[in-house]
Simulated assay, not measured.
Amino acid sequence: MAQSLEQALADFSPGLPFAVAFSGGADSTALLLACALRWPGQVRAVHIHHGLQAAADGFEAHCRALCAQLGVPLAVRRVQAGHAPGQSPEDAARLARYRALAEAVQSEWPDVGDVALAQHADDQVETLLLALSRGAGLPGLASMPSRAERLGLRWHRPLLGVPGRDLRAWLQMRGQAWVDDPTNTDEQFTRNRIRARLLPALAEALPAFRETFARSAAHAAQAQEVLDEVAQQDLTVVGVPPDIRALQQLSSARQALVLRHWLRRHHQTTPSTAQLNELIRQIRACTTRGHRLHLKVGSGHVTRQGGRLHWQ
């Protein structure tokens, strides 16, 4: 069964004080209000002003008014994220938003180490369906983790078991207004098409899909944790940077696993399946000292220097 907002917060144990990422939409409004009621005086809020639409100033004004009403300190950061070639505008905006959230929390409230995000059960389903549509592996199918550490902070998603409609009903019961982002209904974005077209069909055909999809994502996340442990053990053996001969002693599947782990952990880049397959093929062919290797991988290139792989 889906969680209620109250049940979700009962299972949520952030370090105090903590911050809430507050857009002004229904989801983050419900999270902020519920947290402020449960932990009075211990909640901070950060609003990211993207400047991408005329309504953005109104979003900020709404957030300022509600935080003043609740007695919640608010920090506002303005972000205009350009995207690199081959990067989607949505990904660029998301990365810029996380950096701005982290900067705001760490500069405004040095005693805050935890940030709560308002993604809910429908967001998790959309993320899983997007991953499936892209042919993602286990990391993608694991969808959004309920907890993660990055940029020097602990990030929490306490509402992943709560349907979005329940959050809006909870706000309506309290007479609490929120702002609606008009881009959320723009079906040129794949996520919005999933929300508008697929979720209603799934609800009709598979009424429990939110819970069962979330369970599948959790199974994928658990399996990925095991694979990460194996990859780290293999990386300890092949070294950093990886030794080619040591890599050749592993199966192709373990080569793929350890190479992804090396690139993600040490260079913050992710290879495509085609790039990784070609890299493994080249590693297999490295049987002479004169074999050269220079491949586009992720956002850079993997080269051979002596008996080891390097990324630049």
Rank of each mutant, 00 (worst) to 15 (best):
P182A: 05
N184P: 02
V179R: 14
A208D: 15
W170R: 08
F189I: 04
L160Q: 12
D181T: 01
R165Y: 06
V179D: 03
Q176C: 12
T185H: 11
A169G: 10
A169R: 15
T190N: 00
D166C: 00
R193T: 10
A203T: 14
M173E: 15
A205G: 14
R197G: 13
P182L: 03
N184R: 09
L199I: 10
A177M: 01
M173Q: 15
E187H: 05
R195D: 09
Q176D: 01
M173C: 06
P182G: 00
L171M: 02
W170P: 07
R197C: 02
L160P: 11
L159D: 06
V179E: 08
A169K: 09
A196Y: 01
D186S: 02
A205F: 02
T190D: 05
R174H: 15
Q172G: 04
P182Q: 01
G164F: 00
R168P: 07
G161T: 13
A201P: 07
L159Q: 08
D181G: 00
R195H: 09
L202T: 11
D166T: 06
L198V: 15
V162G: 07
W170Q: 02
R197S: 12
M173H: 12
L198P: 09
P163V: 04
A208K: 08
G164D: 07
W178F: 15
R193D: 02
A177Q: 11
E204D: 13
G161R: 10
F189M: 01
N192M: 02
L171T: 08
L202I: 09
A177H: 09
A169L: 07
D180L: 01
R191L: 02
D180Q: 12
N184G: 14
L206W: 15
R193Q: 11
P207K: 06
L159F: 12
N184H: 11
